[in-house]
């Protein structure tokens, strides 16, 4: 069992890097876009908020697999050639952005409107109100669901194997396809994913602790 695992490790390395890359890009892109659109949704007029709402609800309602295949096949036909890697990443990022938009909106609207009024009354502009008053408070509400979403992104990154991108999952399948010994490899794969998510857990607890200290309820 252990020998099989040790044997497999070198073949899994590239796939592991791909998994990290996919997860990292998806998390970063969805955070950036989700922040922007979440703020717009929370503060902007209805006619701007509505398409954002429709987008967020639609992508979250479509199963990820369907989303990936639709992007993978749909974009080239619309004259947008994308490699399988970027097509899958785009689909995953869109899915996660929908989530982050919701989380951001929820965190912002949980803040008492009096806070914005007080911030206005000392002459802060919109961005200044966000940076100095809203975000420091909203981040406490934002972090727990967002960290969950990050873990989901890591797990969801396994789906890129469906369009032929050799991530950790597919690398595992490839070794199994040669050795016909699935058990050691599935266990090894689980251990790797657990390790990644454990690292994320530790990081997230530190993040939460840091922000919890500065805000008292």
């Amino acid at each position: 069992m252990i020998d099989a695992m040790i044997y497999a490790l070198p073949f899994l390395w590239d796939g592991f890097l791909i998994t990290l890359a996919v997860s990292g890009i998806v998390v970063a892109a969805s955070l950036a876009l989700g922040l922007v659109f979440g703020v717009i949704l929370a503060f902007g007029p209805v006619w701007i908020g509505l398409p954002i709402r429709v987008f967020a609800d639609t992508v979250r309602a479509i199963p990820l697999i369907v989303l990936i295949f639709t992007v993978y096949y749909g974009l080239p036909a619309l004259q947008v050639p994308l490699s399988p890697f970027w097509a899958a990443v785009a689909a995953l990022a869109a899915f996660k952005t929908g989530h982050v938009i919701e989380i951001v909106r929820g965190a912002i609207t949980s803040i008492h409107p009096g806070q914005m009024e007080a911030a206005k009354s000392i002459g802060l502009t919109f961005l200044e109100r966000l940076v100095y008053v809203v975000f420091p408070q909203a981040v406490r509400c934002f972090l727990p669901p967002w960290i969950n979403s990050v873990t989901d992104s890591v797990k969801g990154s396994a789906l890129v194997s469906l369009v032929g991108v050799v991530d950790l999952m597919m690398a595992i399948q490839q070794v199994i396809g040669r050795t016909y010994q699935p058990m050691p490899l599935y266990i090894l794969g689980a251990m790797i994913y657990i390790a990644v998510n454990a690292a994320l857990s530790v990081a997230s607890r530190r993040l939460e602790a840091r922000f919890a200290a500065t805000v008292a309820t």
């Binding site: 000392i122 002459g123 408070q137 008292a216």
Partner: peptide, 24 residues
């Protein structure tokens, strides 16, 4: 616009019934 309003509000102070201090 937001900027102009901000500048004008800087010259008007307001104290609120619910205090509205920044808790962080």
């Amino acid at each position: 616009g937001d900027r102009a309003l901000a500048r004008l509000r800087a010259d008007i102070g307001m104290v609120f019934q619910m205090f509205n201090l920044f808790p962080h």
